[in-house]
Design a protein around this nucleic acid. Sequence first.
DNA 1: CTGAAAGCGCTTACAG
DNA 2: CTGAAAGCGCTTACAG
Lengths: 327, 327
Amino acid sequence: MMDKNLTIGDIAQALGVSKTTVSRAISGKGRIGEETRKKVLDYIETHHYRPNVVAKGLAQNKTYNLGLVLPGDYHLVDLPFFQKCMLGISKAASEKDYDVLITMVSNDRIGQLKRAVTNHKIDGAILTRTLIDDRPMQYLRENGVPFVAIGSTEDSTAVQIDNDHRTACRTLTEKLLERGIKRIALIGDDENYMVTKNRLCGFEDAFENRPNESVNCRILLNVTHADMVEGIVEELLSEGTDCIVTMDDFLCSRVLNALQRRGVDVPGQMQVASFYDSVFLAEHMPQVSSIWFDVEELGRKACELLLQILAGESVEQRTLLGYQLRM
Amino acid sequence: MMDKNLTIGDIAQALGVSKTTVSRAISGKGRIGEETRKKVLDYIETHHYRPNVVAKGLAQNKTYNLGLVLPGDYHLVDLPFFQKCMLGISKAASEKDYDVLITMVSNDRIGQLKRAVTNHKIDGAILTRTLIDDRPMQYLRENGVPFVAIGSTEDSTAVQIDNDHRTACRTLTEKLLERGIKRIALIGDDENYMVTKNRLCGFEDAFENRPNESVNCRILLNVTHADMVEGIVEELLSEGTDCIVTMDDFLCSRVLNALQRRGVDVPGQMQVASFYDSVFLAEHMPQVSSIWFDVEELGRKACELLLQILAGESVEQRTLLGYQLRM
DNA sequence: CTGAAAGCGCTTACAG
DNA sequence: CTGAAAGCGCTTACAG
C-alpha cells in the first residue's frame, strides 16, 4: 500500500535538500552528487513514493497519454484482433510510463477523438483501422497530432505499420498451387479495404511464375454477407473447384459449414485455405491451411513507433511485419 | 482547427479582466456579472478556446480519467460484449468530460492497473469481468480507489451492476416448458463463474411452479471446450432429448453445428435455446430462442454509477438491468 | 461582482 | 554539485 500524497516537497523537506535536487535524483537529468542521489532514491524506495505523472506532464507540456482510436461499430468480425492489438499497445506504453486512452469512432463520428485532442489529453494517437478517406486520420493531421496507423494506407505520408499480407498470401497460394490444384477460387470481403487489395495482389503474384500451367482461377470479392456463401459454395462445387481460399477466417468458417452440410470431405475432396487465422478456425486446424500473424507484436511495434516519434526520433514511414504459414 | 496554446491568461489579458473571472465564466462557479460572463464566453467561442483539463485536474486534485480494467487473455469468447461495453462506457464518460484509460489484466497480473493508480492517473475504475477472489478488486479496495464492477460478485460491499440473468433465464425456460417439452438439457460453461451460477438458478426457478409435471431434466456444466459438445449432443439425442438450452451462444452455435451434421431438424425435431445472444447466433435467428441484453447500456450505466460515486453521491450497491426475449 | 495571491506537484533555466 | 525562483494552466479561499 502506498503512502498517500507524498510529494517531491515532502521528500525535500524530510531530507533537508531542495525540490530541485529531488527532481534531479528522480529524473537522472542534471548533475547531482552520488551521495545525494542515493539518499533521495533510498527515501523514495522505502516510502513508496511515486511521482505524480500528471503534474510532471503539465510542467513538460506533455500528457503521457496515447489516444487509441477504436472502431465502435458492431459489424466487426475480428474482435480478437483488437484485443491482442490493445494488449501489445498497452504493454509497450506501460514500459515507457505512458497510458492508453480510448476513443471510439462509429459511423465516422470522431467526437471522442476531438475531445481528447482539444482537451489536451493525448500526445499522439494510434489508429487501429484505416479506411479510404479516413476521418480520424484527416483530423489528426490537420491538428498536428502525431499518429501511426495500424494497417496500410494509400496515404504515403502517414507512418504506418502492417503485416506483410501480400507476401504472406503469395507464399500460401504458391504452396497450394504446388499441390497440383486445377480449379482454385478466392472468396473475399469488401474490395475497398486495403487489406483486401493487398491479399488479392499476393494471390495474383503467385501465378506470375507459372504462366504455362492451366490453373482455372475464380475471384469472388465483396462477399460481405454470410448468406452469400451458401450459393457461392454450391456454384463452385458444380464447377468442379478443388480449392477454396478465403480472405479471412470468418468467411472460411462459413465455407466449411457449407461444405460440411453437403458432405464434402475436407481436404480430401476440397482443399480449404484462409488468408487469416484467428479464432474461428481454431477447431479446424489441421484440415485448413492458413496464415498467422502476431497481432500483439503488431500493436506493440505500432506503439513503439509512436513513442519514438514523440521522442523526436525519425522512423520508417512504412513497416512490414512477418507471418507464419500453418499448413 | 483550434488556436493552439490559448490559455486562460491570454483570454484575461485580451479582455482586460482577471484569470479568476475567466475561470468563473467557464466553470459557472462563483458570482459573476452577466455582461462579463457573456464577453468571456463569446471570446472563447470565437477563438475556439478549450481549457486544459489536465491543469484543471491538477488544481482540483482530480484526473478526469477512469480506469477500465479489461481481460487480456485470449481465451475469451464474447468479445463483442467488451466492445459494446466500452462504447457505452466511453460515451457516458465523454459526456462528463472524463476519459477512459485502459489497463489490461492477464493471468492475474495487475501491473498496468497498479501503474495507473500509483501514477495518479485515474480517479476510479470499472471492472468488466469479476472473478472469485478478484485481484483487481482487492487492489482497488486496499488502495481506496472507487470502482464499480460489471457483472455480479459475491462481495456484497462492491458496487456492482449486471443484467438480470436469473429472471431472464427463468422466463425463457418457462416459455420453453409451456411448449410441452419432455426432455430438456442445459449445457453450460465453468460453474465457478457468477454468470453460470445465476443462469443456473434462473433455469431451476422455472421448475418451481410445476412440481407435478414430469419433465426430464439434465444439467451439464463445465463444458469448457468445444470438442466436448459433439459427444454430448450424441448422448442427448440417444436419450430422446427434445430441447437443448445452452448458457451462451458460442456453445449454442457448436450445438447447432453438431445437430446439423446429424441432419436433425431445428426446431422440428429439437428445440434449441440460448441464454445469451450476441453475434454467433445472428444467422440462426428465427430457429433459436434466446435472451438479449443491452450491453452498451450496461456499460453506460456502469460508468454513470462510477461518476456518481466520484461526485460524492450515494448509489445503489446493486443494480440489475432488464433483458429481452427473442423467440 | 471582481481580483491578487497562493496553490496543485512537478520541471528547468539561471545563479552560485 | 545545489538551490531559489519562475513557470506549466488551471482553481479557490480571501479581500475588497
